[in-house]
Design a protein around this nucleic acid. Structure first.
Lengths: 317, 317
DNA sequence: TACGCACTTGGTATCGATATCATTGGTGGT
DNA sequence: ACCACCAATGATATCGATACCAAGTGCGTA
């Protein structure tokens, strides 16, 4: 910058102002200096600016990336979330610092202006630990009182499926999933509440894994116990597919004997045989929202938790 | 740091040295100062250090995150790659700056010490543009002469499938995929070469999309044309599944009439009916390797491209 | 003429760390 | 007693940007 200043015959502070489009500088000189800077390939030194401004223009995103933990690594949605975050942040001149929970002690993270937590749903302890850093923080997941949370409306997800089953005249619905996970707990809640309004109490089959095998297994255990059921709400598409397949081998047809609804509407759902009904979440929008809220917090504006509507995609199951 | 220095009754340079474990400082004072710093919750100012050292300890990772482009957003593998990268980099005190191609002009990216490019396979122009930044750079994809590339051995992937088909006595294999994509071009090459050694020339069915529908469509067009074929190498699992399903409706059984092999060994592959044979890549290791190579380049050590072995998982198709 | 004001521009200090060179005190060899 | 040398510590300059306060213009008004 000093070099530039000398060449242009002005002081470096003027250069600084010109390059940041400050109205303090005459428009003509401003444009002249900008052109010169561009021509000479001048690159702003970010570290220097960060030091002086005491801001890093960086938001740390903490993701759980260990495979087979909370299934985060098994589907593409976190990446879409990241995409939304990244797009919104860069549009506002911020960059994304990606870390795992383990790497989050690094100095660079503590230098961030804000924090976004993804996939920490079942680890409230971890969330609290990050909160102690005192940085503006937004969490993806199920809403609670402690932090600002963005998530899709899992409770609504449960409700719409319940209403769908009611509409179909089903009287003995089953919920398959792991209610220890806060987001899934919300789905169960919505499901149970909406059914209760019709005097129906669903059965809960606890399954921790989000796999085909687990879904099939759940159906087998139901049939073994001789429990009557005519509808299954599986909290992932894979569980749902596994369930459908098992039901077929057990001699029960979908959707004639049993209705099945999955969650996430993965690309394969539409081409499953029969095409799977599923609840779709808007991940991209979720990312955008997360980013917008940290930015607001960084700018000292008040913010609050928010849930995104979900959509039931009714197909043939 | 100045405050610390005053409290401890030493100069700030001694603090600096003590905290970076410099042997220039007496071990006792060093430990005393470290304890003090920890006690007072002192946090190093990263911007200041970066400014002085003229290094950001940051590697920018540029990913393609637009959905429906190069399918990057449709499967979880890029995330696993990211996981590997992140783990290796943080282990060496570096952090990961995540950006899209669009956001990569941001100042923060140019301040990075190195660059990793993911999912830019079909955009050599973009790769070259980043190369102009003059930063140490490693690219994920198919090897070429221009840059340092890490990728799984797609050519070997093609070869092992070819040999598998030969072993099964197949004489009329078909390749389904988009050979414009460099990585897939390599698979085709390996496939063709290995078959040529047995006097066999495969048929190429060009399909750009990685969907079930596209796979089914390919089979229909083959049958319509009346071309004889007894083996299908699809360059994604979804294509393979679509193909198998179409073949069944067309009255040809898998694997009796036709052998089918997919690519990527997605979680669903094992529980597909029939269980799908597929080529598996080690994404996590790929990430580690990418990270290691940028770090080496940043440390001015020479590096070279490298390919990772793949593994054919033989199941029932 | 003198004063206040808007518009531009500049000088200097500062953000928080580290590199370079200097300084101190002690030790051992001759 | 002298010098060379090592270990430990410090003073100062510096990285590259921006904040703060000042100051030089030109213009309108009392």
């Amino acid at each position: 910058m000093a070099d530039l200043a000398e060449m242009a015959g002005v002081s470096k502070i003027t250069i600084s102002r010109a390059l940041s489009d400050s109205p303090l500088v005459n428009r003509e000189t401003r444009e002249r200096l900008q052109a010169l800077a561009h021509e000479l390939g001048y690159k702003l030194n970010v570290s220097a600016r960060n030091l002086r401004l005491r801001r890093s223009h960086t938001v740390a995103v903490i993701v759980e990336m260990k495979p087979s933990h909370d299934r985060t690594m098994l589907d593409p949605y976190p990446l879409i979330l990241l995409g939304g975050i990244s797009q919104e942040l860069t549009a506002h001149g911020y960059s994304v610092l990606l870390t795992t929970r383990q790497g989050a002690t690094a100095a660079a993270v503590q230098a961030a202006d804000g924090l976004i937590l993804l996939g920490q749903g079942s680890r409230q302890d971890a969330v609290r630990r990050f909160d102690k850093l005192g940085l503006p923080m937004v969490v993806w997941g199920a809403p609670g009182d402690e932090h600002i949370v963005v998530g899709s409306d899992n409770s609504q997800g449960g409700r719409v499926v319940a209403e769908h089953f009611i509409r179909l005249g089903r009287r003995n619905p089953v919920f398959v999933g792991n209610p220890n996970h806060p987001e899934i707990f919300e789905r169960l809640n919505g499901f149970v509440d909406a059914l209760a309004a019709h005097g129906i109490k669903p059965l809960l089959i606890r399954r921790d894994e989000f796999t085909l095998a687990s879904g099939g297994d759940a159906m087998h255990s139901l049939m073994d116990r001789g429990v009557p059921f005519d509808a299954v709400f599986a909290c992932s598409d894979l569980l749902a597919m596994g369930a459908i397949r098992a039901l077929n081998t057990l001699g029960r047809t979908v959707p004639n004997d049993v209705s099945v609804v999955g969650y996430d509407d993965m690309p394969l759902a539409a081409s499953f045989l029969p095409p799977l009904s599923s609840v779709r979440q808007d991940w991209q929008e979720g990312g955008t929202l997360l980013a917008r809220k940290v930015l607001a917090l960084i700018g000292d504006q008040p913010e609050q938790s928010e849930t995104l509507p979900v959509e039931l995609i009714v197909r043939e199951t």
